[in-house]
Simulated scan of single mutants.
Amino acid sequence: MALVSLLDTSGDSVAASSAPDPAPAGESGTRRVVLTVLGRLLRLASLLVAVAVGTFVLMTSSPVDPIEAYVGADTAVISSEQRDQIAERWGLDEPPVQRFAAWAGNLAQGDLGTSVVFGEPVVDVIADRFVASLALLALAWIFSGVLGFVMGLVAGATHGRLLDRVLSWWAYTLASAPTFWVGLLLLYVFSVSLQWTPVCCAGPIGALPGEVTLLERLHHLVLPALTLSVVGISPVMLHTRQQTIEVLASDQVAFARAQGERGAGLVLHRVARNAAGPALMLQFASIGELIGGAVLAEQVFTYPGLGQATTTAALRQDVPLLMGVALFTALLVFIGNSLGDLAHRAVAPHAREGVR
């Protein structure tokens, strides 16, 4: 009321002097962004610490003797002095707390240690194996996301009909199917029975990596990628189906139908955008499940990627390599969740205020 009185007596000059300064609003927005970034970095740091501690505790609590796992079949012929030398070489004679403190100190300097199995720096092993797995993960991720979204739209648009029931049954069945079981089934059908695809590896057996052509790589890649895609389609499809059903029951779709919109045009123009936000968020969040599935798929198809290196590190008690892989995959999952959040907010702007 006081401001109104000043406006009545002093005219436009007082109104101009009483106008709010836009600078505080800008500063408030910048401060909110800074706090959001700092909060995410703090969550990332706490996640990496929890993953490192949990992985180390699990590895040190394993009943597998690390020296026997390192030596392999020749463990019966080594002497006690040789066992002591191996333990001293890899720090196995030190208490677990001291070993973890030494590893954390090296990590603070950017050193993840040396792989026990491969005899190379952990960073190099992860980089080489991740390059091999990247094509597999990317192909499976894109295929499962696109096909799952399209199938979800079709199932939601035909809600209650035969096509919807068939697609839903198929998705629920695959959602409960283990990755290795699906891989073995596809391997038996396409590689053993039909002989359309190779049985294993990332290239022809005996061929050097530089001699393998792009077509041969794709030929060996198609079945592992199909395995991961088939398993990853289900959550995207089921979530998109439910979102499509909800949007089709909304008032805006009822208004569009009153204006004469029908069929595929209605679904594409009124439903697809609203369903794309949650689907994108779910697809990025599924990176962790995709990496976990790749561990099993690469074992089934003997694919030399990061998943197979993870299994080898676990079975051979390669603590430095497994710790590095655990931190790397945790970082990938965190980045995937963050990208999913940003994609959801970009596609569905109304969600920006509700996400912090």
Rank of each mutant, 00 (worst) to 15 (best):
residue 90 W to G: 03
residue 53 V to Y: 13
residue 109 Q to S: 12
residue 29 G to Y: 03
residue 125 V to N: 01
residue 61 S to T: 08
residue 66 P to V: 02
residue 117 V to K: 13
residue 136 L to E: 08
residue 64 V to F: 01
residue 107 L to R: 12
residue 38 L to P: 10
residue 92 L to F: 09
residue 61 S to K: 12
residue 97 V to D: 13
residue 99 R to Y: 02
residue 79 S to N: 03
residue 77 V to M: 15
residue 72 G to Y: 03
residue 122 V to G: 00
residue 31 R to T: 09
residue 137 L to M: 12
residue 51 V to R: 02
residue 116 V to R: 01
residue 121 P to N: 13
residue 92 L to Y: 12
residue 85 Q to V: 02
residue 23 A to V: 10
residue 94 E to D: 14
residue 54 G to D: 05
residue 43 R to I: 06
residue 119 G to K: 06
residue 134 L to G: 05
residue 60 T to S: 09
residue 43 R to A: 13
residue 134 L to S: 09
residue 101 A to I: 14
residue 81 E to V: 05
residue 42 L to N: 10
residue 22 P to L: 06
residue 97 V to L: 15
residue 69 A to L: 05
residue 129 R to L: 11
residue 118 F to R: 06
residue 128 D to K: 14
residue 61 S to F: 05
residue 24 P to R: 08
residue 123 V to G: 06
residue 99 R to M: 08
residue 50 A to Y: 02
residue 35 L to F: 07
residue 47 L to E: 00
residue 109 Q to G: 10
residue 74 D to I: 01
residue 58 L to K: 08
residue 70 Y to P: 01
residue 135 A to L: 15
residue 73 A to W: 14
residue 125 V to Y: 00
residue 65 D to E: 07
residue 128 D to W: 08
residue 137 L to K: 10
residue 101 A to L: 15
residue 135 A to G: 12
residue 137 L to W: 12
residue 91 G to N: 02
residue 125 V to M: 00
residue 89 R to I: 02
residue 112 L to E: 10
residue 41 L to K: 08
residue 80 S to D: 12
residue 86 I to Q: 01
residue 56 F to I: 01
residue 67 I to S: 00
residue 95 P to T: 01
residue 58 L to S: 14
residue 132 A to S: 15
residue 113 G to W: 03
residue 131 V to W: 15
residue 32 R to I: 08
residue 64 V to Q: 05
residue 133 S to L: 03
residue 126 I to R: 07
residue 34 V to M: 00
residue 99 R to H: 06
residue 22 P to G: 01
residue 114 T to L: 02
residue 99 R to P: 01
residue 99 R to V: 03
residue 105 G to F: 05
residue 137 L to I: 08
residue 115 S to A: 09
residue 31 R to E: 07
residue 117 V to T: 14
residue 136 L to A: 08
residue 40 R to P: 04
residue 40 R to Q: 14
residue 76 A to P: 10
residue 65 D to Q: 09
residue 99 R to C: 03
residue 135 A to S: 15
residue 131 V to C: 06
residue 92 L to T: 03
residue 120 E to T: 07
residue 74 D to W: 06
residue 41 L to A: 14
residue 94 E to H: 13
residue 34 V to W: 06
residue 114 T to V: 13
residue 21 D to K: 01
residue 82 Q to R: 13
residue 18 S to M: 15
residue 98 Q to S: 13
residue 73 A to T: 08
residue 57 V to I: 14
residue 81 E to D: 15
residue 59 M to E: 02
residue 100 F to D: 12
